[in-house]
Design a protein around this nucleic acid. Structure first.
Length: 212
DNA sequence: CCCGTGATTATCT
DNA sequence: GATAATCACGGGC
């Protein structure tokens, strides 16, 4: 299983990995129950060459050490009172990662809504919002998805996007070509995606291929 | 002091 | 109701 995850996170480019993470299931074991959700929105960050990345020019600081760890390492950083979740890709020493920007709740929705008491439409459609709904802080920073309470399920309850949209990454400004590079991926029509028009939602299937 | 996110407010339909 | 514009926050450098 751990081998499968390592293969998934190292055998293709990080943009390809970011796109294929859509529909995979994120799982969190909590003292009061299991929380699971499908990934709906991701962004790829391409390490030393990427002016939008924390690891730009191999810039190492105390907070971003996790980026140089092996694939499957959890990288969580804080901004304001928010925590943002990234999954480290590629072999150790290559500081690339995928930012998780949106998830669709599957299991434990009631617990998520207690931990983030807002309307469902605003529960997990943003990188800081989803971490609050999951009840996570930066405790898991530097830990692995192979052990510990947070994991990635590549095999069960997987959904297939009908259409994956690509756009520039959110909030990367004045960074030249990196500001426009199409490194953000999301499930078209899914309501649990940030910065989307409510008018174009798929209210029936949420943008997933229907299960037969 | 700069930065991006989430919340609030304003404007249009 | 939906979308755009504006505000506040607080950690990192």
């Amino acid at each position: 299983m751990a081998t499968k995850l390592t293969e998934f996170l190292t055998q293709r480019s990080t943009p390809e990995i970011a796109a294929s993470l859509l529909g995979k299931q994120l799982c969190l074991q909590t003292p009061t129950g299991m929380l699971t959700a499908w990934i709906t929105e991701t962004e790829a960050y391409l390490g030393a060459k990427d002016a939008g990345a924390h690891a730009y020019q191999n810039h190492q600081t105390a907070r971003n050490q996790a980026l140089w760890q092996p694939a499957g390492t959890i990288y969580i950083y804080q901004m304001r009172a928010l925590f943002l979740l990234n999954i480290v890709t590629q072999k150790a020493g290559v500081p690339e990662c995928v930012l998780i920007r949106g998830i669709e709740p599957v299991e434990g929705l009631d617990q998520m809504q207690r931990q983030r008491p807002v309307q469902l439409a605003n529960l997990t459609n943003g990188p800081g919002k989803l971490m609050q709904a999951l009840g996570l802080d930066k405790t898991l920073n530097g830990q692995s998805l192979d052990d510990g309470p947070l994991s990635l399920d590549l095999q069960t309850s997987i959904r297939q996007p009908q259409l994956v949209e690509r756009t520039a990454r959110i909030g990367i400004v004045n960074k030249g070509e990196w500001s426009t590079a199409p490194l953000r991926y999301y499930v078209a029509g899914n309501p649990f995606v940030s910065h989307i028009s409510r008018r174009r939602l798929d209210h029936e299937q949420h943008g997933w291929v229907p299960l037969v």
